[in-house]
Simulated assay, not measured.
Amino acid sequence: YDAVADADPAYLVMEYVRGGTLEPHTRPDRLLPIGDVLEMIFKCTRALDFAWRLGVIHRDLKPANIMRVEEPRNDGHHQPGTNVKVSDFGAAMSISASETKVSGVGSPAYMSPQQIKEHPLNHQTDIFSLGVVMYQLLTGQLPFQGSNNYSMMYQITHAEPVPPSAFRPELPPALDAIVMRALQKSLDDRYPTWDAFSFDLAEAFRGESLREQDNRIADSEKFNSLRRLAFFRDFTDVELWEVVRLGEWHRVAGGQMLLREGDAADGFFILAEGELKVTKARKLLNVLSAGECVGEMAWLTPEHGTRGADVSTLCESVVIHLANAALERASEPCRHRFDRAFLRILVERLALANQRLTNV
């Protein structure tokens, strides 16, 4: 947040993060729920992708360098959730820097084969290291073990690890596949991008084997859903994460009333999955599909105060409710994206209405 160089001693002002690191959860008797691990690793992939886009490679990823953030509860206390902060970029490397790169940095148990061999590095070295972290959080074991650092580094460069499910049989095959791909020794066989890694993590959470264990809508699923929706096509990843946190996400069965004409209006809804029908006086006005919004006039003209139509689900649907107060807390760039999206929708609706009038 700040750097003071003229003090004695000089010092840095940094963000205070309430919580601890992930290191305690690498013990077999303190493993986190599988869904929580996926959520946190997914969020690490997004943070590290952001760093990579800025030309930064971390080079020292390990559980002790990932903070698990404690979130405030309604009673004023805090509890750990699935939000994380990637910390300690002291060994990080800028790919655009002109100075000589320091070799031999990092923690041996988490180093990639390329890092051990002092080959040129890119983001895939961090993908390997995060794969080691994921393996350890899921099993309580390191994938490569040795009696000393040299033995461990030999294992990393020559041995194949056993799948995580060998230590934790309830792990689904999809997680074995993800971890083992992240731990591939060859860059050609490892995940080529952070996007590919995070996509597989989100898909694994959506899979039935994990849904049975955790029926909530995971942040990873929310983020990927937003990325697919046309409404959010101009939002940056940072702004999408804002929406993940600001919105209330609901999985609603088919045939349920979502909005009722005349009810007090607060905010609007965006359909992430499924179909909605809009009716007034029992007459069908519209059928909405994923990516469309409804009730936005409550945000654009809050003085009207009531809903103007009934809205119900035609099938099981996932809807995002953004209350006015929540959107007011959003950053100015994020609110600007919403305003532009609403303007685009208004133009599209006017064009459609004009076309219908022309065809009459």
Rank of each mutant, 00 (worst) to 15 (best):
V4I: 13
D8P: 00
A10R: 11
L12W: 08
V13D: 02
V13M: 01
E15D: 09
Y16M: 10
V17K: 01
R18F: 03
T21L: 01
T21W: 02
H25S: 04
R27V: 07
P28S: 07
P28Y: 01
R30K: 13
L32T: 00
L32P: 00
V37R: 00
V37P: 02
E39Q: 11
F42Q: 02
K43Y: 03
K43H: 10
T45G: 05
R53T: 08
R53A: 08
L54D: 07
G55K: 07
H58D: 06
N65L: 02
M67C: 02
V69N: 00
E70C: 03
E71V: 15
E71T: 13
P72E: 06
N74Q: 11
G76F: 02
H77V: 10
H78Y: 15
Q79G: 10
N83G: 04
V86S: 05
V86E: 01
V86D: 01
G90A: 04
G90E: 05
A92H: 04
A92K: 05
S94Y: 06
S94T: 04
S96V: 10
E99S: 12
K101V: 15
S103L: 15
V105F: 04
Y110S: 02
Q114Y: 12
Q115M: 06
H123I: 08
Q124R: 15
D126T: 07
I127D: 03
V132C: 04
L137T: 00
L138Q: 01
T139Y: 03
Q145E: 13
Q145V: 15
G146I: 05
S147N: 12
N149I: 11
S151F: 08
M153T: 11
Q155G: 06
A159E: 14
A159Q: 14
S165C: 08
S165E: 01
R168L: 05
P172Y: 14
L175Q: 03
D176V: 02
A177Q: 14
D189A: 14
Y191G: 02
D195G: 12
F199W: 13
F199N: 11
E203S: 08
E208V: 07
E208D: 09
N215D: 13
I217T: 09
S220R: 03
N224M: 11
N224H: 13
R228Q: 12
L229M: 11
D234P: 04
D234A: 13
T236R: 10
T236N: 08
V244N: 04
V244Q: 00
R245Q: 15
L246R: 05
W249R: 06
M257E: 11
R260L: 06
A264F: 12
G267T: 07
A281V: 09
N286A: 15
V287P: 02
V287H: 05
G291H: 07
V294S: 05
M297R: 07
M297V: 12
T301C: 10
E303F: 06
G305L: 06
T306K: 10
G308K: 11
A309K: 06
A309N: 07
S312T: 12
H321T: 07
L322N: 02
L327F: 08
C334S: 10
R337S: 15
F338K: 07
R340L: 15
A341F: 03
F342N: 06
L343R: 12
A353Y: 08
N354H: 13
Q355D: 14
L357G: 02
